[in-house]
Amino acid sequence: MDKAMWEKAVAFHGHECPGLALGVRLCEFVRLRLGRTSAHDEELVCIAETDACPGDAIQALLGCTLGKGNFIYHCTGKTAYTFFDRATGEGFRVIAKRNQTPLSREERKQQIYTAPLEELFSVTVPKEPLPEKARIFTTLTCACCGEGVAEHMARLQDGKVVCLHCFHPYDR
């Protein structure tokens, strides 16, 4: 594993762990597959299916971030990540293979460092289409709490604009 990539990911994440090691190797895998080092804007998109440690490596090393809108979280509880290259339209879903051998955290981290990439990941077609580019929405003011809320996340309640925290859904 590239030492500079590892150190950059650890600095972002805050500590060393097997999940971060998996994320760094995932970034290595994606870079090799796409022939691209990182995203300066939204040209590379990642849809993460878990909020675990590998996501921090993706943000630190591939330039996919929540703020730019090219790191999207769709929770399925799976260690799976779909990547799209906007320039080519290529997309693929990478799934971390489950480790069946009981190992300590340190042993697992070492195993991830040294394993061939094909032992760590499998690739399938995306389960969802390439998301549209990030949009900038008008900020509205919630009639209840007075806080700003992006227009696409606001709701109407009793004829007034409210945020999701103040909205009382009618779900019977």
Rank of each mutant, 00 (worst) to 15 (best):
L66I: 13
Q100M: 13
A57V: 09
D56G: 13
E90F: 08
G35D: 03
H74I: 15
E90D: 12
E16G: 00
P54K: 10
L66K: 09
P54V: 14
A11R: 07
A11H: 02
T65W: 01
A39D: 09
E49Q: 10
P54L: 11
C75Q: 11
A9E: 11
L66F: 00
Y73Q: 11
W6H: 00
E42G: 06
G19A: 01
A60I: 13
H40S: 15
C75Y: 06
E49T: 04
H74N: 14
F12D: 03
C75D: 08
T79F: 07
R36T: 14
Q59R: 14
R25G: 04
F92T: 09
A52S: 14
C53F: 00
E28N: 06
C27N: 12
E16W: 01
T65Y: 01
D85V: 01
L22N: 01
A9T: 10
F71T: 05
E49M: 06
T79I: 14
V30R: 00
A52I: 12
E49W: 00
R36W: 00
A21M: 10
T88D: 07
I58E: 04
G19P: 08
Q59N: 06
G89E: 11
W6K: 01
H74D: 15
T65I: 11
R33C: 05
F29L: 08
D41N: 11
V30L: 00
F12R: 12
T76V: 10
A11T: 11
D56R: 11
G55T: 10
L32S: 12
N70L: 05
